[in-house]
């Protein structure tokens, strides 16, 4: 069990790491294409396309890590006004709702992925690119987000602090 947990954590942080690399890639790809264009070369079209894809990967791969870090902004209005016992209940229920949303999207994302594979769907930009390589990010990301939110349902650590205001 402990090994599974370790492996899982490693996977989660590896995905966040890739998200960070994608961010740096945005900078590199833009600089390369501008430098090429202004020195009279034709910038590789994949520089442009890859930066558009990088935004998707970055957002989806990093999102579960941000759940763990409590980095998705939320407002504490009701939870701040409640007595501690009730707050615990509401906080866990809200987290449960998040698990539910993530699971629905993971399930529909998996369906979309399978559809993209069987229909042989292509994403058309400068190139014709197999769409499933991109949409695979959905079931993976929302699936992991469901796991991360469920830690706030069952674990000791609550999502809400009880202090009024917006939290990140």
């Amino acid at each position: 069990m402990e090994t599974v947990g370790k492996l899982y954590r490693g996977f989660l942080y590896a995905m966040a790491g890739i998200a960070g690399v994608m961010l740096v890639w945005l900078m590199i790809s833009v600089i390369m294409s501008v430098v090429m264009r202004n020195s009279g070369l034709q910038p590789f079209a994949w520089l442009f396309t890859s930066s558009e894809y990088a935004i998707l990967y970055m957002t989806m791969l990093g999102a579960p890590w941000l759940v763990r870090e409590k980095g998705h902004v939320h407002i504490e209005l009701v939870t701040a006004a409640l007595p501690i016992g009730m707050r615990r209940v509401v906080s866990r229920l809200v987290a449960l709702l998040c698990v539910l949303v993530s699971l629905i999207l993971a399930w529909k994302g998996a369906e979309l992925l399978l559809g993209n594979i069987t229909r042989n769907d292509l994403d058309v930009r400068a190139y014709y690119f197999p769409k499933w390589i991109l949409t695979i990010a959905f079931p993976v990301s929302f699936g992991l987000m469901a796991i991360e939110f469920s830690r706030f349902v069952f674990g000791d650590n609550l999502m809400h602090s009880g202090e009024a205001g917006i939290h990140e």
């Binding site: 998705h72 902004v73 939320h74 407002i75 504490e76 209005l77 009701v78 939870t79 509401v90 906080s91 809200v94 709702l97 998040c98 949303v101 993530s102 999502m159 809400h160």
Partner: peptide, 11 residues
């Protein structure tokens, strides 16, 4: 309602 009960804005 969802925001008021403390659901993360994106969710």
């Amino acid at each position: 309602v969802l925001m008021a009960i403390g659901m993360p804005v994106a969710l």
